[in-house]
């Protein structure tokens, strides 16, 4: 649905470290989040240490890909050239059923019809050959 040239490099994730792993799963259409391998507490964005049990052991745990709209804003001024053709777009915080919240888009619905608590499910936007974004749509 988009071409690579519309996306300046500075707006794509830098695929290194944990981001490389997160986006590799997205590319495989497999949404996963970092989880403590010991006490099984999710955390996002990824970080080295579990703030519950202080284990450094982590795993990438799959989630169902369903969640609810938590809050949003509707961007009507561009933060870069790549976004001009998309405006207005809703940048939404979605709370996954398993707990983590993500910044994402909810597509397939006009921004003014979004509601807090609206159930959504993931879809995968293959933005570039390397980067697939996990976006959501109403269930």
């Amino acid at each position: 649905m988009t071409t690579t040239t519309e996306h300046n490099d500075y707006q794509l994730p830098v695929l290194q470290g944990t981001a490389k792993e997160f986006y590799a799963y997205c590319k495989a259409h497999d949404l996963r989040f970092q989880r403590c391998a010991k006490c099984k507490t999710f955390r996002h964005p990824p970080r080295p240490l579990c703030n519950q049990c202080y284990s450094f052991e982590t795993e990438w745990a799959p989630v169902k890909g369903t969640g609810k709209v938590y809050c949003w804003t509707v961007a009507m001024a561009p933060i870069g050239k790549a976004w001009v053709s998309y405006m207005p777009y809703a940048a939404v915080v979605v709370e996954l059923d398993e707990g983590p919240r993500v910044a994402t888009w909810v597509t397939g619905i006009p921004p003014d019809q979004l509601k807090v608590g609206m159930p959504v499910k993931v879809w995968y936007d293959e933005l570039t050959p390397e980067v697939t974004l996990a976006k959501f749509k109403p269930v």
Binding site: V14, A19, Y89, A91, W105, L127
Partner: peptide, 18 residues
């Protein structure tokens, strides 16, 4: 950079608008 900006969220008014 890695988790917000790919979704067009990168400026303070956007985070704060949430």
């Amino acid at each position: 950079r890695d988790y917000y900006r790919p979704f067009g969220v990168g400026a303070p008014p956007q985070h704060y608008a949430w």
